[in-house]
Nucleic acid binder design. Structure first.
Lengths: 164, 164
DNA sequence: CCAGATTTCTTTAAGTTTCAAGCAATTGGC
DNA sequence: GCCAATTGCTTGAAACTTAAAGAAATCTGG
């Protein structure tokens, strides 16, 4: 706080460059890794990253999920999921059926073939990630987890405040 | 290291779940913040995030950059930049001219109007970012910067090793 | 029961993105 | 000087993505 010549409170223009630089670095890291994973998925399995991500969501829930669930978990729009699922059903990776209880709802699951293919990819994917983060110590990993959790909470709070 | 019943070396399957969880959290954070910034840019200035990012690159270099430079800095494909620039020239934000020295090269710059509009957006954008990261202490910010720098280096090393 | 609100999903238009192929200009060896 | 390789950009096809609008089913408060 600073007082000017007439002794009124004056706010200095606040310094926010550090946060901006942090955001750019976070974005760079993610883009870099995402690009690397995308390349390897294409090269090794000829699959796109969005398809892999969708299958990863479904692998965690054998009984299946609704399109809305997928949309929320992947943080993408509903229409996006519709198209993605469309293509994965077409290629035989996914099974899609209308819910008995609520006929608006579509429940999707991995097919047997889809699950088998995903598991194969997931095994290698995990090794790639381990390699990409290979120079971080276990302590670095823990510390990053903690700070990113804090960041996520802060961002969610900010988003919520805006929407409210 | 473990020895099996016939005294041969056996590798335990290594534990890589922590790195995977870290990657997912990193991705979640970035997606969350990116979505928030995208919403605000559209709501407040009716501009898309890729356009803002491209203008941000150009604002740093008044004398202009080549399309390749932009492509590298933004970490997107050449073809992507071509289309993006096309639309921004169309809307009067960018000026594009063929280099005298090398007629393959296109040099793009912000127009006066483009720069004015970007500066207006950038001022608010910086406040949004500060708000989004608002719950982090200065120490958190420093620590994240450090760990993300290490992460970036590690990822680049891994990518380089694969390509080599 | 029923009208309005809500939820779930699809559709549409516009834009973004990648990859691969291709063209034009330049550079480097010989 | 000339030819091959490289570089810079564009194009085309397919996929991804969002926002917004719409259709269908369900829910809710009279």
């Amino acid at each position: 706080m600073i007082l000017d010549s007439e002794t009124k409170a004056v706010e200095l223009p606040e310094h926010h460059g550090d946060e901006l630089r942090l955001w750019l670095r976070l974005l760079t890291c993610t883009t870099l890794i995402e690009g690397e994973v995308r390349s390897r998925l294409r090269e090794r399995f000829d699959v796109t990253l969005p398809r892999f991500d969708l299958m990863a969501q479904l692998d965690k829930v054998p009984e299946g999920m609704t399109l809305s669930d997928v949309s929320k978990r992947m943080m993408v729009s509903n229409g996006n999921v519709t198209g993605l699922v469309e293509r994965l059903v077409e290629s035989g990776h996914l099974d899609r059926r209308t819910s008995e209880a609520d006929r608006r709802v579509q429940v999707i699951r991995l097919t047997k073939a889809g699950r088998a293919e995903f598991r194969k990819m997931a095994t290698e994917h995990e090794l790639w990630i381990a390699d990409i983060f290979g120079d971080l110590t276990p302590k670095d990993v823990r510390e990053l987890m903690r700070l990113l959790a804090k960041t996520k909470a802060s961002a969610q709070k900010s988003a919520k405040a805006r929407t409210a």
